[in-house]
Amino acid sequence: QTVHVKGVQYHFPNPEEAVKFALKVAKDLGGRVEFHGDEIHVE
C-alpha cells in the first residue's frame, strides 16, 4: 500500500497502517485523503 503526501511516497505492508497514517497526516496538514485503487493520496 502506497501513501502519497506532497510528492513523497510512503510504503506500508499493511493497508490498515497506511490508512491510519494517511488520516493522521491529512488531519495534521488540514488536507483530505483520496483513495485511488491501491494508492492513497493526501491532498
Rank of each mutant, 00 (worst) to 15 (best):
V33I: 13
D38C: 11
Q9P: 10
G7C: 04
V33W: 04
G30Y: 06
V42S: 00
D38K: 11
H41C: 07
H11A: 07
H41K: 07
V8P: 01
A26M: 04
F21R: 00
V3A: 01
H4P: 01
Q1M: 15
Q9F: 09
V33D: 00
K6H: 14
L23W: 12
V19E: 08
P13D: 14
R32L: 07
A22R: 00
K6E: 11
H4T: 13
F35P: 02
G30M: 08
H41R: 11
H4N: 10
H41V: 09
V3C: 03
F12Q: 01
Y10A: 02
E39Q: 13
F21V: 02
H4A: 05
P13K: 13
A26D: 01
V19F: 14
G7E: 05
T2E: 04
P15T: 14
D38E: 11
G37A: 07
F12S: 00
H36K: 13
V19T: 08
E43M: 15
K27A: 14
E39A: 12
V33K: 00
V5D: 02
E43Q: 13
A18M: 01
G7F: 04
V3P: 00
V19D: 03
G30S: 07
D28S: 11
D38N: 14
E17H: 06
P15L: 15
A26L: 04
P15S: 13
Y10S: 02
H36V: 13
A22Q: 00
K6C: 11
A18E: 00
V19W: 15
A26C: 05
V3F: 01
E39I: 12
V3W: 00
G7D: 07
A26F: 03
E43L: 15
G7I: 02
A18S: 03
I40L: 08
V42D: 01
V25K: 07
D28V: 12
H36W: 12
V5W: 09
E16F: 11
G7P: 03
D38A: 12
L29A: 05
V33G: 01
G30K: 08
I40F: 04
K27L: 12
E43G: 09
E16K: 09
V33N: 01
K20Y: 08
D38T: 12
K27Y: 12
